[in-house]
């Protein structure tokens, strides 16, 4: 049984904007029966302001696919095409509170449908610039996952947008690699490529730790603990739990093997603090909570 939020259930049971628009200004369909979900979207656009005045959808799929479609229509109604084009799958998932990771591809399908509908509008109204046309042709990309027809372009876009790092995540968000698995090596190559690019670009645009709100500070520290520290501890049978942040003092509890280990304090100080100093702020110190 999936854990769906109340919002997912609400959008599934009472989907907004279901239907078709007969004289739609733009129509797009993504997904197909074979894949198990498909979304058809209809837009009515005010020609002068380029604002979406009406939007309707029809969806074949599971509860989260229907809920994602419904959430998308709520997000884009009243927006200009330019604004709507920027709606990401993350925003769709946010409207729904949360989607199980395995279902994130439903939110991606919503984002794709919107972009396809906007492309359809631009094409019909001769709005495509030469550059965009070129991009549209390029947009197709190279098919990586033959089972679900997923291109490298799509994988790259979704990985960057959602900060994905693992194969399982790519499959959950795009379906790529979810059937025969023959393309998993190729997906890994794409992931490795993106990781390299990120590393090269890394030392820029990190907002100063001090300027963050307390909540953001905690989130950032938690993120680094999850990404950089816990995996190392888990490997040795231990674990770490972030308890609190007081000023620049990080309070954490060690569990499992580490908790009974004589070197616990040392491990904690050395590893945790150096990682936090490296990735978050040099000002942080660590204190063990028992």
């Amino acid at each position: 049984m999936w854990k769906y939020t109340e919002k997912v259930m609400d959008h599934f049971l009472n989907p907004r904007n279901v239907g078709e628009i007969e004289d739609a200004d733009a129509v797009a369909e993504v997904g197909n029966v074979t894949c198990g979900d498909a979304l058809k979207i209809f837009l009515k656009v005010d020609e002068a302001t380029k604002t979406i005045t009406d939007v309707k959808f029809k969806t074949f799929g599971c509860a989260s696919a229907i809920a994602s479609s419904s959430a998308l229509t709520e997000l884009v109604k009243g927006k200009t095409l330019e604004e709507a084009a920027k709606v990401t799958n993350k925003e769709i998932a946010a409207v729904l509170g949360e989607l199980p990771e395995e279902k994130m591809h439903c939110s991606v399908m919503g984002m794709e449908a919107m972009q396809a509908a906007i492309a359809d509008y631009k094409k019909k109204h001769g709005m495509e610039t030469a550059e965009e046309e070129e991009k549209a042709e390029d947009h197709e990309g190279r098919i990586v996952c033959k089972c679900f027809g997923v291109t490298d372009t799509k994988i790259r876009r979704v990985v960057l947008e959602n900060d994905l790092t693992t194969l399982e995540q790519v499959t959950a968000y795009t379906k790529a690699g979810g059937a025969c698995g023959a393309c998993l090596d190729q997906i890994q190559e794409i992931l490795d490529g993106i990781a390299r690019e990120k590393q090269e670009k890394a030392p820029e645009e990190k907002p100063a730790f001090d300027s963050l709100t307390p909540v953001k500070k905690v989130i950032l520290i938690q993120e680094i603990i999850d990404k950089e520290i816990r995996p190392a501890l888990l490997k040795d049978g231990g674990d770490i739990e972030l308890i609190d942040l007081e000023g620049t003092v990080v309070k954490a509890r060690l569990r499992g093997v580490c908790a009974s280990c004589r070197n616990a304090k040392l491990t904690l100080k050395k590893l945790v603090q150096s990682k936090l100093n490296e990735f978050v702020s040099p000002a942080l110190t660590v204190e063990e909570v028992r």
Partner: peptide
């Protein structure tokens, strides 16, 4: 999955061969 979830609203329990109920994609 959609069918099962709507049936569940009435307390009706059944199963599905659909991909979406298990998290697999096929």
């Amino acid at each position: 999955e959609s069918i099962l979830m709507l049936l569940d609203m009435f307390g009706i329990c059944a199963s599905s061969g659909s991909a979406c109920t298990t998290g697999s994609l096929e």
